[in-house]
Design a protein around this nucleic acid. Structure first.
Lengths: 292, 292
DNA sequence: AAATTGAGTTCCAAATAATGGAACTTTTTT
DNA sequence: AAAAAAGTTCCATTATTTGGAACTCAATTT
């Protein structure tokens, strides 16, 4: 197994980069993934627990967690102890667990240092100014888009509120645009692995529907979200090939459906396409000068 | 050792909650910590590596990391592999390592679910509206403040840019206000552990100077940053006792020194004190109704 | 062009840490 | 007050991590 192509750069070859995390029963999150992948190693198991604590929608008590991870009480207890000691998890006085502050600190640095995001930022901003609507920048991560930047149309809404949020690929504009950038095999593979949910009437809820649409997107170079994720919300989006074979991303313009006229859509398609191209070029330029 | 008071709630007792991370030689970060604490367990060691990768100021190659962690090549290699497989770290095509997107996702959830932050938010906003200046909300974490909310005076600056950022306690308004909230012993203890740096002329750069100031802050209930961290920046701040013996926090109003008149300071002292009190009350109210 | 160095990767016996079952303590429920 | 549930501790067994050395590959140097 693991017939990964060895990169010629001096670089760690990763066997299989699924985000790895296990949820059981009805604890199906907005992960978009169909089946659990077994977490390997001590780290994996610890992160499995961390995921449960951090991504749960309700506050989790010891027993809640115990029911999700298939582990003996003693083991889980020690794992939580370790996570707490490391500052990745905190305990509330009522005995529930929460994600710890160390995560915030790590993520803040990760975000501010991220070269792709910083290169893309001016273009994202320009797109926002040109359209006056909400603009998203998202990056491919397994079966999800993770939003790494966002400019709201209405500045009164808190900006950072959505940063780092993740959505499934199959029902978002950016997600579909990114899928269209992958090679057929990879794309089809992921299409099989989604845990499809019919969020709205128009959601593409089967692999076939999705792959058809992807084929169309490949031709046009632009994708649409026609209220497929949320009723009343449309978006136009284009994929970005980061050039380093690691970064696949996308930009989008989003707005309430009623506010968008047909010719606006066409205009956005062009703007979004141009923005994506511009980011690709800047990335290439930044990559060219070997390393640093 | 570790004579921690056992909480009577059904709750994990943590022996000693230092953020645990090791930096060597000149790799002294903005961690504020004097000495390295040995990371225990597999998780701790993995996080040590993650810290190095995520918190470094320059892009780190394998060998760079190797020189900081005191480990054999083989071991570090496997640790990095694990981190990558888990999505906590990514490799750039030039062989440097970066913090992975999974951190962003985890942190986003951690942030949005954080009850303290959400309870404090309206008060923070109100304080911003009353003063028209930048307002920070920070939480105590080891020897640092971690900023969990921020409202800029100038909206053109990106809001989220500083979220999750950490600063040493001894040279920030919020930091000193929080220290003043701790019991003498704890406070003195931390004062010894800082890795004092004279950021500016006015920085309190010894434990004695700091403890004197803290004593004064205890009496007044408000702390000041008189350009102690950055030249030209002053702030007024008050500590918040979250009530659950876990959450110690603080709010502050910050502005360029030249813009602040003396009577403004007095006004801010009151506003900041009131805000802190209001947050404490809301927290108590939210805690009272046992759990759920 | 061959040799040397440096950087990263793989392997495996030895050392260490994680496991899981059961017993124990505390809290909550009946 | 008794019983059940929830959380914690302990320790022999088991599995993972460790660290040293050998190996591969690319980049320099001679």
């Amino acid at each position: 197994m693991a017939a990964t192509v060895q990169p010629r750069d001096a670089t760690l070859a990763v066997k299989d980069s699924r985000p790895a995390s296990v949820e059981k029963a009805d604890f199906a999150d907005a992960k978009g993934e169909k089946e659990s992948a077994p977490s390997t190693g001590t780290l994996g198991k610890a992160l499995e627990v961390l995921d449960i604590v951090a991504l749960a929608d309700r506050p989790m008590r010891f027993t809640d967690i115990l029911q999700i991870v298939d582990q003996p009480r003693g083991t889980l207890h020690r794992q939580l102890s370790n996570l707490i000691e490391e500052g990745l998890v905190t305990v509330n006085p009522d005995g529930t667990y929460d994600a710890g502050l160390r995560l915030l600190k790590l993520a803040a640095r990760a975000w501010s240092k991220n070269t792709f995001r910083s290169i893309a930022e001016p273009h994202v901003r320009k797109l926002h100014e040109a359209t006056g609507e909400t603009v998203h920048l998202g990056v491919l991560n397994g079966l999800e888009v993770i939003y790494v930047d966002k400019i709201e149309s209405n500045q009164t809404v808190r900006m950072h509120s959505q940063l780092g949020n993740a959505s499934p690929l199959y029902c978002t504009g950016i997600g579909k645009a990114m899928l269209a950038l992958l090679d057929e095999e990879d794309c089809a593979n992921r299409a099989q692995r989604f845990d499809y949910k019919k969020h709205t009437e128009t959601t593409l809820h089967t692999a076939d529907l999705l792959l058809n649409e992807i084929a169309r997107i490949r031709e046009v170079g632009v994708s649409h979200d026609r209220e497929e994720h949320e009723v009343g919300i449309r978006c136009v989006s284009a994929g970005i090939d980061g050039g380093d074979s690691t970064t696949i991303a996308g930009v989008s313009v989003t707005a309430p459906a009623y506010r968008i006229a047909e010719d606006t859509i066409l205009e956005w398609e062009n703007l979004v396409r141009q923005t994506a191209k511009a980011i690709e070029q800047d990335m290439a330029a930044a990559m060219g000068p070997r390393s640093r």
